[in-house]
Each structure stands twice: as C-alpha cells, then as structure tokens.
C-alpha cells in the first residue's frame, strides 16, 4: 500500500492522465476482492437491509399491492404469543446444544485424543462424525419414524428396557415435541463438534502433558489444567456457532413437526416461514426476520466483547 504514497505530488505535476491512471491502478488492486464483495454484498448484506424495508410494509401477494405499515408489524411481534414460545424454544435449543455440543463434545474429544492408538482415535472420530455428514432432512425423517408410536424404535427400546410406561407420543405431545427435536439435533451434531475439538487438542504441544505427568497429575487433572485452557479459543468459537445456530434452526423442526402440535415446537425460523409463505404475510415475516437478526447479532457482539475483555485481563 505504501508505494503509491511515496510521491503524491509527482503524479499531479506530470501529465494530467497520470492521476487517473493511478486511480485505475488502485482500483485494479481490488480485483482480488471484487467478486466476493459483489456476491456477498448483493446476496448476503443487501437482503438484510431490504428485509427492514419490507418489515415496514403490508404486502398482498394476490393483488400485488404493497402499502406502508409503519411499525405495525413490530407491534404485532410484541403481542404474538407464539413469538414468546418460539424464543423460549430457541433458547432451550441453545442451552441444551451448548451442554452437549460444546461441553459434552469437548469431554468426548479429550477422551478420544487420550486413546493410545492413532487408528482407534481416527476410527471413533469418524464414527461419531457420520450423522453430521447426513442431511437434516434424512435424519429428521428418520427420527420422525423412530419417534412414531407403535412402529418406532424409541418405543421398542423403552419396552425392551421395561420402561414401556415412559413411552409417549414424542412429537405429538406439546410438552415433549421440541425436546424430541433437540435430542435428534444433539445426536446429529455432537460428532462434528467433537471433531473440531479433536483438531484443537492435537495442536496442544505434547511437552505440556509430559511435564504434567512428571508432576504426577492424573488424566482428569490434565484435562482440567491443560486441555481446557489450551482450547479456550475453540470453546469460545463453538459457543458462538452453537448459540447462533440454535437461533437459526429451521430444517429439523420443519421436517419433524412443522412447528406443531398447536405451535408447541415453533421456533423463530419456522414461524417466519409459516407467516410469510403459508399465511402470505411477508411484512410480518420480515419483522420476525429482523428479530432473528437482532438476536444473532447480539450473540455475536457479546462474544466479541467477551473476547476483547479476556484479552485485557
């Protein structure tokens, strides 16, 4: 960057075309990012800005008319009981996912990486990863059948264990629907998280563990005082990915319950879809979109702030 500014006067003193040639040259340097900026700008950033505009209107898809709505759609957000329910479900999703896919996966990765044989390590990592490689449509449909009363594996296993009394209409009962979906999501996601933690753990210098062993530290002690602090960045990254992911969840719920019964398993994403694409209320759907944006943004900023604070202390 510096070479251009070496003699700013020289360019202007020479022929007039030189300045514009310099400008062109400067722009030419941007060719590396031009495609990415155009793509991300048009299809990632612009729709989000446009979403705010749509959220201030009423749209009628049948007449093709758009009328200004002011903050009406946002007022409805505050009165819509399903919004509260959906937020709660998203929150439950986030908390449970952090427990299993951050802390659970961390422990699992520590156990796997503690195994002596490299082949065993590779084997378990790969086995646990398999569900993450499969589409949520497939796993959602699969668990939809697993949870089916009468034909499902779930009931079969419970009966086999003598726990037949515990059997429920997992997806049809408003009290259990969302948790049944969350459980599927943990089944699918923990292996991916464990793999990422494995990657981070492999980066920790072996000398640290050697030194700890010399001092007589046991396995648990080593995990607590070496592995955990040394993977703190990964843990932070995983928390943010998991939490923002939990507030954007859509597929699992859509495939397994569509938000039912009686909206009991509705999350923000599916409620947006329901309002915009089934009830034709694009303006209100856009307002729900703004809410999702605000929540995920807040999570992201909180994480950045935590990171910054940690560096200071």
């Amino acid at each position: 960057m510096t070479d251009i500014h070496q003699d700013p006067g020289a360019a202007t003193r020479q022929e007039p075309g030189a300045t514009s040639r310099r400008v062109i040259q400067e722009f030419w340097r941007l060719r590396w990012v031009a495609v990415a900026v155009a793509l991300v700008g048009s299809f990632v950033y612009w729709p989000i800005i446009d979403n705010f505009r749509v959220s201030l209107t009423h749209q009628d898809i049948f007449t093709g008319e758009t009328s200004p709505a002011g903050l009406e759609n946002y007022r409805r957000l505050t009165e819509d009981p399903v919004i509260g329910l959906a937020l709660w479900n998203n929150l439950a999703y986030a908390v449970i996912s952090v427990l299993f896919q951050v802390f659970g996966a961390f422990l699992l990765a520590a156990i796997i990486e503690g195994l002596g044989s490299p082949r065993a390590r590779a084997f378990w990592r790969a086995v646990y990863f398999i569900p993450s490689a499969i589409s949520t449509t497939v796993t959602g449909l699969l668990f939809y059948f697993i949870y089916q009363p009468g034909m499902g594996l779930m009931d079969g296993v419970l009966q086999g264990l003598g726990l037949g009394a515990w059997s429920r209409v997992w997806l049809g009962d408003p009290d259990t629907a969302i948790y049944a979906i969350i459980a599927m999501s943990q089944w699918q996601g923990f292996g991916y998280a464990a793999l990422l933690f494995s990657v981070a753990i492999q980066k920790i210098p072996a000398e640290l563990y050697d030194a700890a062993r010399m001092d007589g530290a046991g396995a648990l002690r080593q995990i607590w005082s070496i592995t955990l602090p040394m993977t703190r960045e990964m843990t932070g990254l995983m928390v943010i990915i998991t939490v923002t992911g939990a507030f954007q969840v859509f597929n699992e719920v859509m495939v397994m319950t569509g938000g039912g019964p009686n909206n009991a398993s509705q999350v923000l994403g599916t409620w947006l879809y329901e309002q915009g694409f089934n009830q034709n209320d694009m303006g209100y759907a856009a307002a729900i979109g703004s809410l999702i944006f605000a929540v995920t943004m807040a999570c992201g900023l909180a994480q950045l702030w935590l990171n910054a604070r940690r560096r200071v202390t």
Partner: peptide
C-alpha cells in the same frame, strides 16, 4: 381411536 397418541401419527401410517 388411540386417543391423544394420534397427534404423533402420520395419516399415511
């Protein structure tokens, strides 16, 4: 019918 359980059953089943 089977009662509330029906809410977990697909109509195809």
């Amino acid at each position: 019918t089977v009662g509330p359980e029906m809410n977990g059953i697909a109509y195809q089943s």
